[in-house]
């Protein structure tokens, strides 16, 4: 039987999510942070589809949510890049570290 168990998809998604978290937390550059977020969203999408595929066969909710997530991810990427460019214009840098006006 050459079927792949559900949990393997889940493990894959978990790893991808962890990698995304690492990127968000550790990278200096704002664009890299954005990439990390995209990876996390993809991990979530894998989970959605895996559960839709294995868990709730007759429902289209999973794929539908994947559609929404992809859409919103695209919108988010556009807005995030706009913000990054705006910050870059003010600070001449795209490093998240350098934008710390909220320091107490």
């Amino acid at each position: 039987m050459n079927s792949i168990p559900l949990v393997h998809f889940l493990y894959l998604a978990a790893m991808l999510f962890g990698v995304g978290v690492f990127g968000v937390l550790a990278r200096k550059n704002a664009i890299s942070v954005l990439m990390g977020i995209e990876l996390m969203l993809n991990a979530v999408n894998i989970n959605f589809l895996a559960f839709a595929r294995y868990w709730n066969w007759n429902s289209l909710t999973g794929p539908v949510f994947v559609v929404f997530v992809i859409t919103i991810a695209a919108a988010e990427a556009a807005v995030a890049l706009a913000i990054i460019i705006s910050i870059y214009r003010h600070l001449r840098t795209a490093n998240v570290d350098d934008a710390h006006y909220l320091r107490g």
């Binding site: 999510f17 978290v21 690492f22 550790a26 200096k28 998240v96």
Partner: peptide, 23 residues
């Protein structure tokens, strides 16, 4: 320039712990 920020170690730790927890 360094690609990683100062909290690299903690970031690795947090990501690893989260992944382990998820696993």
């Amino acid at each position: 320039a360094k690609a990683m920020n100062r909290q690299l170690l903690f970031a690795v730790l947090a990501a690893a712990v989260l992944t382990v927890i998820l696993f």
